[in-house]
Simulated assay, not measured.
Amino acid sequence: MQAGDILLENGAEIFRVEETMERICRYYGIESGNSFVLSNGIFTTAGNEREEIFAKVQHIPVSGTHLDRVAAVNQLSREIEAGSVDLEEVKRRLKEIRVMPGKSKTMQIVASGVGSACFCYLFGGNLRDSGAAFLTGILLYLYVIFISAPRLSKIVGNIGGGALVTFACTTFYLLKIGEHLNYMIIGSIMPLIPGVPFTNAIRDIADGDYISGSVRMLDALLVFFSIAIGVGMVFGVIHQLIGGTLL
């Protein structure tokens, strides 16, 4: 149950959570274990005339993606099947994985800038556009880490992020730092895009987990719409102030 909780909380697919829990149960001799996994909850039962009765429901809020924790639980499940760790070691490792630190704030900010610049260049921008996107990406993740994540809801935070990117890129464009506003905005906004949840949603639906896939898809689409609202709001205000077209 702890392994499934960590996997689901950190962005693993539904089939991965179910398969990992099944493998662990099978190794420890639990033949009657059954798990029903949704995108934000796990229902587990076990027990017959040979095994102690067990039932638990665990609520898991939809949160971010930490693939290093998912990979760590996957590796641990392989070691369990290989018989190379005992039960106490498994408990200790799971506690360590749950509190495994993510990337530092500095690394996240720099990665956002580099990713924004690379995406801008990939989509057709030149080096000047990529430079502007780099600065915008850094500014965006400063906002995400210190304002949006700790203080704002997902909807308001993403609306603000889309607005901030559009305002910053437009400012750089008007100052002649960048030459193609559309490529600058597209590249700079990529750190906000929920690519892994959207991909997992499609994979869950393809695997027949329609409820979980639909919830994840709705969550990803909500982020898309929020970003679009923020971009549209800033363009509307700029159009009212200076008129004409920027793109």
Score class of each variant (00 low, 15 high):
Ser35Gly: 10
Gly64Ala: 06
Gly33Glu: 04
Thr65Leu: 04
Ile30Phe: 04
Thr44Met: 10
Gln58Arg: 15
Arg50Gly: 07
Asn48Trp: 07
Ser63Pro: 02
Ser32Pro: 01
Thr45Leu: 14
Pro61Cys: 02
Phe36Glu: 13
Thr65Pro: 00
Val57Ser: 06
Ser32Val: 04
Gly47His: 07
Ser35Trp: 12
Thr45Met: 14
Ala55Asp: 08
Gly41Cys: 13
Pro61Met: 01
Glu51Lys: 05
Val57Asn: 05
Ile42Cys: 05
Val57Tyr: 11
Thr44Gly: 02
Ile42Leu: 14
Gly41Phe: 06
Val57Gln: 05
Ser39Lys: 02
Thr65Glu: 03
Asn34Met: 06
Ser32Ala: 14
Val62Tyr: 02
Leu38Asn: 08
Ile53Met: 12
Glu51Asn: 09
Asn48Gly: 15
Arg50Glu: 15
Ala55Trp: 02
Ser32Asp: 10
Gln58Ile: 15
Gly33Arg: 03
His59Trp: 07
Ser35Met: 13
Asn48Gln: 11
Val37Phe: 05
Pro61Asn: 01
Val57Ala: 03
Glu49Arg: 11
Glu49Ser: 13
Arg50Pro: 00
Ile30Asn: 00
Glu49Asn: 11
Asn40Thr: 15
Arg50Cys: 07
Glu49Lys: 12
Val57Asp: 02
Gly33Cys: 15
Asn48Met: 11
Phe43Val: 13
Val62Glu: 04
Ser39Gly: 11
Ile42Arg: 01
Ala46Leu: 11
Pro61Tyr: 02
Ile30Pro: 00
Phe43Gly: 03
Leu38Tyr: 12
Pro61Ile: 00
Phe54Lys: 09
Phe36Asp: 12
Thr44Lys: 04
Ala46Gln: 10
Ser32Arg: 05
Glu31Asp: 11
Ser35Arg: 04
Asn40Leu: 14
His59Asn: 12
Ile30Val: 13
Glu31Arg: 09
Ser63Ala: 08
Gly41Ser: 11
Leu38His: 07
Asn40Val: 04
Leu38Met: 14
Ser63Ile: 00
Gly33Leu: 09
Lys56Met: 04
Ser63Gln: 05
Ala55Phe: 08
Thr44Glu: 06
Pro61Gly: 03
Gly33Tyr: 06
Leu38Pro: 03
Asn40Lys: 10
Glu49Leu: 13
Glu51His: 07
Asn34Gly: 02
Ile60Cys: 03
Ser63Cys: 02
Val37Tyr: 01
Val37Met: 05
Ala46Gly: 06
Gln58Gly: 01
Glu51Thr: 12
Val37Gln: 02
Gly47Asn: 10
Arg50Phe: 15
Gly64Asn: 03
Leu38Ile: 09
Val62Gly: 00
Thr44Gln: 08
Leu38Thr: 14
Val37Thr: 15
Phe36Pro: 11
Gly41Asn: 05
Thr65Tyr: 05
Thr65Val: 15
Ser39Ala: 15
Lys56Gly: 01
Ser39Phe: 11
Asn40Trp: 13
Ala46His: 00
Ser39Val: 08
Asn40Glu: 14
Arg50Thr: 09
Val62Ile: 14
Gln58Ser: 10
Pro61Arg: 02
Ala55Val: 04
Ile60Asn: 00
Ser35Leu: 08
Asn34Tyr: 09
Glu49Cys: 07
Thr44Ile: 14
Gly47Ser: 12
His59Gln: 08
Asn34Thr: 07
Phe36Tyr: 15
Ile42Asn: 01
Asn34Cys: 10
Ile42Gly: 00
Gly47Val: 13
Ser35Asp: 04
Lys56Cys: 01
Pro61Glu: 02
Glu31Lys: 13
Ile53Gln: 10
Thr65Trp: 02
Glu31Val: 14
